[in-house]
Design a protein around this nucleic acid. Sequence first.
DNA 1: CCAGTTGATGTTAGCGCTATCATTGCGCTT
DNA 2: AAGCGCAATGATAGCGCTAACATCAACTGG
Lengths: 368, 368
Amino acid sequence: MGRSFDSGPDGSVHSGRDNPRATGAVRLSDVAAAAGVAAMTVSRALNQPELVSERTRERVQRAVIETGYVPNRVAGALASSRSKMVAVLVPTVAHSLFADVVQSITDTLALEGYQVLLGLTGYQTTEEAAVVETVLSRRPDALVVAGTRHSEATRARLKAARIPVVEMWDMSDDPLDMLIGFSHREVGAAVAGYLLACGYQRFGQAMADDPRSHQRAEGFNARIEVEQAARPDSGIAVMTCWADTPATLVGGRTATASLLADMPDCEAIVCSSDTLAMGVIAEAQSRAMVVPETLAVMGFGDMSFAAATWPSLSTVRIDGAEIGRLTAEHLLKRFNAANPEPVGEVLDVGFEIMARQTTLASRSALPS
Amino acid sequence: MGRSFDSGPDGSVHSGRDNPRATGAVRLSDVAAAAGVAAMTVSRALNQPELVSERTRERVQRAVIETGYVPNRVAGALASSRSKMVAVLVPTVAHSLFADVVQSITDTLALEGYQVLLGLTGYQTTEEAAVVETVLSRRPDALVVAGTRHSEATRARLKAARIPVVEMWDMSDDPLDMLIGFSHREVGAAVAGYLLACGYQRFGQAMADDPRSHQRAEGFNARIEVEQAARPDSGIAVMTCWADTPATLVGGRTATASLLADMPDCEAIVCSSDTLAMGVIAEAQSRAMVVPETLAVMGFGDMSFAAATWPSLSTVRIDGAEIGRLTAEHLLKRFNAANPEPVGEVLDVGFEIMARQTTLASRSALPS
DNA sequence: CCAGTTGATGTTAGCGCTATCATTGCGCTT
DNA sequence: AAGCGCAATGATAGCGCTAACATCAACTGG
């Protein structure tokens, strides 16, 4: 209590405030001196309180407040080789789907004191490799990455890092470790099934030209082909228009114009994102077409505005928050487990078709 | 080349692979052994290449690749007390405005090898204090925080940390250090001025009940009062309806219903967010009111969908990416400067009124 | 009453890097 | 030839923390 922070009676282990390399911040040993215990005891009182007697714990607590101590986790991480950080790599955060995931991971990890180191990879694999290396240099306790297509160099680095890795967002046949996502093919097939059930037959697809959209388009077409085979004379048909990435409103309008030019009797347009779908609706309305009576529209993503438009947008909902939560919970379980070995587990979180006003549930009941 | 990594001829400084506390990862000294130089030289070759001869630099480069070395920046940060990390604290990232800022900061800082440590504070000041302490324990080189209202404890911690602090998003009279944002009052006043110029006189306000929206509402009302004083018999009037936070579509619809009930001749509804505005439009359309002829709508935020709707949403654009870029550039300048003292600088990035289809530029020319 | 056990605390020795100063070799001057 | 300055490299000593082991008192049971 009455003791100086700078020197114990024995001359403290640390070189004290006069050392040119010291940061000047309050250290564990300062708190220890204030509490009249050893530095190690303070460390334990803060990190493993159950190992310390209640009386000591309280004294340390008081000394921490008194000195205004903020632990230096950089030093802690170096000494213990546990950083309590999780690197999260997503292409961008300026997109509500990934933003939801990041938000949810951050919130869930925070419950046990873990923090998120954010890495934005862009949409290029080359950039990903650089970001992975930078992020690994911080020695995170785990790494979460969106997507399953990594360069060989990246895969090697991730394996060499010997930390839990969660791939999310996409499904894959050979996950590096843990995988949490959904199948884009199945989304496409489900959308086709839904629209067929509604009674639609003439389809346009306005898709952004990226790998995931391609998978959804494939799933869609596969389901349509099954139906064509089952009902050869039904007049079921699909046209696809590929838009530039990233998807924009204008892209949706342009795609719609193109699709309507080639397929004037198009009944429904399926989009690879809600943003494109908004463009489709805008183009339709500007042509005085009535949505959904004249033209149905289907989006993807269930972004915040999808439910808010008039007519509200039918779309596919991916629960990004759920993916994030599951990811974080899985990691916390791994951290607390004795054995941190890769598990090779795969979790399909699925998706939900949100039937709203831009599609008609029973179009077949209407006069065509 | 033919040398073992584990022991130099002199018996290496480090205890080698048999030490139980070593991580097993490739270390600087391993690279040094492979390149036949001292560890310090490798460190310099990587961090201050200009201090090393070209021949040595190349040898080191080769050794790095050969050994698969990934620097341990945790150790580096401890030794140099520079972490090359910037903490970014925002209420949420599941909101495109903040997401844009985070994206932009991350991208810009990455140019000079800095990384972002993300902290999500929620909308409560109590949470902010805890998050600030946690991130400071990582000893970031700077801290960026959205908003200017901090608890005393937070302000004290930030000052004690002795690192550059950038407050962003709001204006304030007494910034802690650097401040980059815009004036919410001025936004409100500008929106009022714009709508008055269009010829509107009967206004509704659908505002989320948060401090920033209050400031905008104040600015709006102040401008309206000036006009009322100038033209006492004009019939200019405002009604305000406060919606719950966070703003939702349904909140917008409810607010609209309430406003129209109290002010049936309402000509224009001003919203505190684009999301609320979408709700207003949806409610209007469901009542067969024509936007903008019967009811004009004004949003805030210029979110991605604002330009995409039909009719497209008139709103106020804040350039989140610009705020992020300026923030990051300011910090980089500070990092490279000799003197890292607080600057007390304030930067107003302003805003832009995006006149789109939900407002009529010359309503006065129409028959009322 | 003493070896064995337990719980609480202290001591020591690094974690892997970089700041700092020391050393070396080389070209140049006087 | 001795002295100087400079560029390149090396050796040393920590940064602030925690793993691992050591110590010590207070018990336990035979």
